[in-house]
């Protein structure tokens, strides 16, 4: 059974000029121990999906329909207090910017201890020992001496390691990592990604990795979901999606990764921009930018259709058109 099962999730923002549908019929699952990548342009709804799962949508955003089932239980309709017991304990989160996710006036050890004692029954001494253990595990040198150091005494990469320890210390079964490496430089990114993979494997934690970096996805994930304008346009095992993308949008994304081998005069890109939420075109949301657009795409909206091991929301995959 899947650890997390999101089905037909819609998130809406009521505004003065009508209701905006920011997530439209999102369905996906995450298996225990699996790493699911979520990619897409800015504003595609990646982070919003994460917020919806942990029940921290910024008002006026709200779950309009659909279900989120975690470990066999529905969690999208829980009250704040019940949700609080799940957050951190069962579902952890890692944010983009490690420089700001730590409380500047509390030592890292104390933050770890506070988090563990919120969810686990631990004496002060055990909690301290485990805080040191966690800092060692995420690769902080001289952890026992630095356990009560303050965030400003750590570098950016070290701080992100602390943030990862913080997300994992209550041993959640699912971690939502929202662009965990965006604020770091490239060499540190690789370390952090390796670290997250190792920890996920060691502790059997599932990860939902939100990013717009296809390189990170290709290296880290088991499966990947590609989002566009609030919908999932393609989802499947990472090798298949990267090697033989089914949806023209995914193809465009892959095509726009700069390569060191081929020298081109101009970087390839997908022409146009993602539509705003109040101006999503009729039919397939991608049709104005699609190079393979057909008449049908301007009328009807394709659902996710199976294409081998992956699923893609495109009429091209149907009936062996490709």
């Amino acid at each position: 059974m899947a650890l997390l099962e999101v089905s037909q999730l819609c998130v809406e923002f009521p505004t003065r000029r009508g209701t905006l549908r920011a997530l439209d019929n999102i369905s996906f699952g995450i298996e225990p121990g699996e790493i699911l990548g979520v990619v897409g342009e800015s504003g595609a709804g990646k982070s919003l999906t994460g917020s919806a799962i942990i029940g921290l949508l910024e008002p006026p955003g709200r779950v309009a329909s659909g279900q989120i089932i975690f470990d066999g239980k529905r969690i999208d309709n829980l009250d704040q207090e019940a949700m609080r017991a799940i957050r951190g304990r069962h579902i952890g989160a890692i944010f983009q910017d490690p420089l700001t996710t730590l409380d500047p006036l509390m030592s890292v050890g104390k933050q770890l201890i506070e988090t563990m004692q919120t969810h686990l029954k631990l004496s002060d001494r055990d909690a301290k020992a485990r805080a040191i253990q966690w800092l060692e595990e995420v690769g902080i040198p001289a952890a026992s001496e630095r356990v009560f150091a303050y965030p400003h005494q750590f570098s950016g990469g070290m701080r992100q390691r602390v943030v990862i320890a913080l997300a994992l210390c209550a041993e959640p079964r699912l971690v939502i990592a929202d662009e965990p490496t965006t604020a770091l430089d490239v060499s540190i990114q690789a370390q952090i990604i390796t670290l997250m993979r190792r920890l996920a494997a060691d502790h059997g934690t599932s990860i939902m990795l939100v990013t717009h970096d296809m390189g990170v996805i290709a290296e880290t994930c088991d499966r990947v979901a590609v989002m566009y304008a609030g919908r999932i346009v393609e989802i499947g095992p990472v090798e298949n999606v990267v090697r033989s993308p089914q949806h023209p949008y995914t193809e465009g994304l892959m095509g726009s990764i700069p390569s060191l081998e081929a020298r081109v005069a101009r970087l390839r890109q997908i022409d146009g921009a993602m539509p705003r939420l109040n101006a999503i075109p009729q039919g397939c949301a991608f049709n104005p930018r699609c190079t393979k657009v057909m008449d049908r795409c301007r009328e009807e909206r394709p659902d996710l259709l199976p294409a081998g091991t992956t699923e893609a929301a495109c009429f091209l995959v149907q009936g062996g058109a490709r």
Binding site: I54, L56, R84, A85, I86, R87, G88, R89, G92, A93, F95, D97, T100, T101, L102, D103, P104, L105, M106, E114, T115, T118, H119, V163, L166, A167, A170
Partner: peptide, 26 residues
Amino acid sequence: GRDYVMAARVIGISSPRIMVSHILPN
């Protein structure tokens, strides 16, 4: 509105505790 408060909420720390031990010192 700062990230560390959001992070504390995500971790599941209760509101009174966030106010006293995270926001107050700041």
